[in-house]
């Protein structure tokens, strides 16, 4: 039973991180219909920025809370800036190009960013400081669920709630939904579509950065390649839930998190990544609209 609970909570943690990344995929897909392959790299850059800022501040002798806040802030700012820039360089000029072009451009961007970090930093795993403190009241349960796991889950929940409020009630959220429905009509109604697309990238990137910071602190090491795998898995989660749907992305993430956690716990850890890829392949073949997505009728 304890082992089950441990796996359950580790699945929940994985799911939370996937959800933070998957939202970026799903929001971008919803608005411009593009798989942003570089999104995983934005998450990786968020983690690296956090690592660098935290390490510098540690050397300078700041206290832990200040480090956590500064590192988090820097990660969010920089990831957002990267997301914004990537969109401007690699996707915006291709708005009206054939469908293959932005996809290839996105893959190129992903490879570029990976190697940029690899060359500018290192190819080795870098130790990541534990920024999330161990809570005393959690000690009796530490063998089942760690403090950082609790924090990850709480932060994710909070972020989800804020995002839902933003999209449901703010004027930006309304403009985003309008743009996702019909770009031309939104433009005619005076919505600055380019701005809305940029904002979508910025929000998605900020969420990914939070995910990057949390998981890096939880696992304790990062390298330039973490974004690629996490990106594909989060994308799987988004597709599983129904791409373009925000609750779908969250649902899909938790399902994927638990599947991975239980499968590696009870079956074999060698094939950890194979499970995720298999889910991806199966869902796309049998239910490409995902769990909460709607089938689209093609326009002729």
């Amino acid at each position: 039973m304890e082992y089950f609970l441990e796996l359950f909570f580790s699945g929940l943690t994985r799911g939370s991180i996937y959800a933070l990344i998957a939202l970026g995929y799903t929001m971008v897909y919803g608005i411009i219909g593009l798989i942003n392959f570089a999104h995983g790299e934005i998450y990786m850059i968020g983690a690296f920025t956090a690592l660098i800022v935290a390490s510098v501040l540690t050397v300078l002798g700041f206290n832990q809370l200040a480090i956590l806040l500064c590192a988090g802030f820097a990660a969010v700012v920089y990831s957002s800036a990267y997301g914004y820039t990537v969109e401007k360089i690699a996707y915006k000029p291709l708005r009206n190009a054939p469908r293959l072009s932005p996809l290839i451009s996105a893959i190129g961007m992903s490879i570029f960013l990976q190697n940029y970090v690899l060359l500018a930093q290192t190819s080795d795993f870098m130790p990541f400081p534990a920024l999330i403190p161990e809570f005393e009241f959690m000690e009796p349960y530490a063998h089942i669920v760690g403090s950082s796991e609790l924090v990850i889950f709480l932060v994710t929940t909070l972020v989800m709630v804020l995002l839902t409020l933003l999209i449901k009630f703010s004027s930006i959220g309304k403009a985003m939904r309008a743009t996702a429905q019909d770009k031309k009509m939104a433009m005619l109604l005076g919505i600055d579509v380019n701005k809305i697309i940029s904002i979508t990238f910025v929000i998605g990137s900020a969420l990914a950065a939070i995910g990057g910071l949390l998981i890096a602190s939880h696992i304790g090491q990062i390298n330039f390649y973490i974004g690629f795998i996490a990106g594909i898995k989060a994308f799987t989660a988004a597709v599983l839930g129904g791409i373009g749907s925000i609750p779908g992305a969250v649902l899909g993430s938790f399902i994927l998190g638990w599947t991975e956690s239980f499968a590696t716990g009870y079956i074999s850890s060698d094939y950890e990544d194979v499970f995720a890829f298999s889910i991806l392949v199966l869902i796309l073949i049998f239910k490409p609209a995902g769990l909460l997505g709607r089938d689209k009728t093609k326009k002729v």
Binding site: G108, I111, Y116, L119
Partner: peptide, 8 residues
Amino acid sequence: LLFGAIMV
């Protein structure tokens, strides 16, 4: 790095 940049 070059290959990625070329694609974009």
